[in-house]
Design a protein around this nucleic acid. Structure first.
Lengths: 146, 146
DNA sequence: ATGGGTGCAAATAATTTGCATACAA
DNA sequence: TTGTATGCAAATTATTTGCACCCAT
């Protein structure tokens, strides 16, 4: 987690960008939040440490980080976009009920390669698998019943 | 394609909803458009046949159809949501350059099942694989060169 | 005939942008 | 010091909603 703060900070510096107080705090929030937060959530969390930060600085920083490939903007469900700090290859479980997003690490899924059909469509840069459903919490902890 | 018009129309009627002139034309546009159009694109196409239709009727109809599971709202890239008429199990190639979305039919991908890890997260209703990259057209037809 | 559907306009949500000031390098 | 980043406010984009009238059933 502390490593993530360093990776993101270093990534910004390497792009010749300034590591401002605001950016550092945004990066800290992102590194500590595994829930794929949206801009609003990041804003609220950062405001606790930098009460004067503005929403558009959060938006601009999130855009900067994803333009640099340091975080990933995702939109699994209607509503605000969310941001994923995890830059290793992984997949997702998405709860269509509460919006929960959980990372999935599975070498078998990482091994999926585009077939000839897909290669004919274009060059593939990334493959990701999405499992949509209803999370355990939304089902009231009932694993076996409907 | 004509079959799709019937399936969507029937789907509406089965839900006890009225098959209005506007809805029928929207359904016709959707059935004929394989490009996963956004609301604006559907609106423009329908306007050629029903010049008085309003944008919010298009939005409302698209919402109605996806609520009934007759079409699927997808959002692969930033910007407006897009709608997928294809209700058979399939996957997608997404061009991050021009926004092209192509359907992929591949039984091997359809066969992906949630592992124990994923089952612990919740009940999975759908699995879909996304290939992101740059389409042939955006690469200028160059299949082998960078 | 009658209740759901439409069109209009206004509201809301999510995000972006212009500009003067502030601060990291 | 110097230009990039910030904060404020206003603009844009995408979508939703209230309401009176209309039309499919």
């Amino acid at each position: 987690m502390e490593r993530r703060v360093e990776q993101l900070s270093l990534g910004l510096r390497r792009s010749g960008l300034r590591l401002t107080h605001q950016r550092l705090e945004i990066v800290r929030v992102l590194a500590a939040d595994e829930t794929h937060p949206d801009a609003e959530t990041v804003y609220e969390a950062v405001r606790m440490r930098v009460p004067t930060i503005s929403m558009d600085t959060v938006y601009r920083t999130l855009a900067t980080l994803s333009d640099r490939g340091l975080i990933t903007r995702v939109q699994f469900l209607p509503g605000p976009a969310r941001y994923d700090v995890n830059q290793t290859t992984h997949h997702h479980f998405v709860c269509t009920c509460c919006g929960l997003v959980r990372d999935i690490d599975d070498p078998a899924l990482d091994a999926i390669r585009p077939t000839a059909d897909v290669r004919r469509m274009g060059r593939t840069d990334a493959v990701s698998v999405q499992f949509r459903g209803v999370c355990t919490a939304c089902r009231g902890g009932k694993t076996r019943r409907t």
